[in-house]
């Protein structure tokens, strides 16, 4: 599995890289890659975004240095900031399982397993996508799939610093309260530590779910 650790980047840079890696996965150069990054403040609008779920005008967003992008993922509006860890898995599901729900639940499992290593019990909610802790949402998911290759992905709120920027939207089109790993634990958390843990979780999942398919890759997968 290829890893791309971008540090803190504008959303657009990671978006363009996703498209670039998508092309390589489509050409069968490799079957799985994950981009990890943190974003400068940005609101992205998925295909299901309803106008009412954006609570601030463009001028207000500009004044708060928050960029705005319409993107091709599913889901409604979401916010990304440097207090979050964002992961964009680009996987050829032909080599895993061609099942959108399986993939969404797998991302939730990976997040829950990662949180668990930090002593936090994350939960799924019936008929909803994402991960909750003590009734508040800690991680969001929105994906796109072309030719059974995934892009876009997940974000986990780690630090509490910029959670207030969620006030500019109704996250995922719902009246929900967001939380962060730091808020739950009541202490600072190293985003680097969470990132390294999340990488391990992705590698575990790659081994468990993609193993039987690796023979189908034309070139050697790293």
């Amino acid at each position: 599995m290829r890893l791309f650790d971008l540090g803190i980047v504008d959303f657009n840079a990671a978006w363009q890289l996703q498209k670039n890696i998508f092309s390589q996965v489509r050409e069968n150069d490799f079957s799985a890659a994950v981009i990890l990054c943190r974003h400068h403040p940005v609101i992205t609008l998925g295909r299901n975004t309803k106008k009412d779920n954006i609570l601030a005008g463009e001028e207000t967003l500009r004044q708060n240095s928050i960029a705005l992008y319409k993107v091709e993922r599913g889901g409604d509006a979401t916010y990304h900031g440097i207090g979050q860890l964002t992961a964009y898995p680009i996987l050829n599901l032909h080599y895993f399982k061609k099942d959108i729900n399986w993939y969404l639940r797998k991302l939730e499992d990976i997040i829950i397993s990662c949180l668990s290593d930090f002593g936090v019990r994350g939960e799924k909610r019936k008929d909803l996508t994402g991960v909750w802790v003590e009734g508040k949402k800690i991680a969001s998911i929105g994906i796109a799939i072309k030719q059974w290759i995934t892009f876009h992905g997940l974000s986990i709120n780690i630090s509490s610093g910029d959670l207030e920027n969620f006030r500019f939207i109704r996250p995922c089109g719902m009246d929900i309260e967001m939380t962060s790993l730091e808020s739950v634990l009541g202490r600072p958390v190293s985003i680097e530590d969470v990132k390294l843990n999340l990488i391990l979780k992705f590698q575990e999942a790659r081994r468990e779910d993609g193993k039987s398919c690796s023979a189908g890759i034309r070139r050697r997968d790293n």
Binding site: R47, G74, I100, I143, K146
Partner: peptide
């Protein structure tokens, strides 16, 4: 062949049918 023909949306995912 393989051109994106139509985009389909479920709750949290978009899916392009070629």
């Amino acid at each position: 062949e393989k051109d994106d023909l139509v985009e389909i949306t479920t709750d949290k995912a978009t899916f392009n049918l070629p």
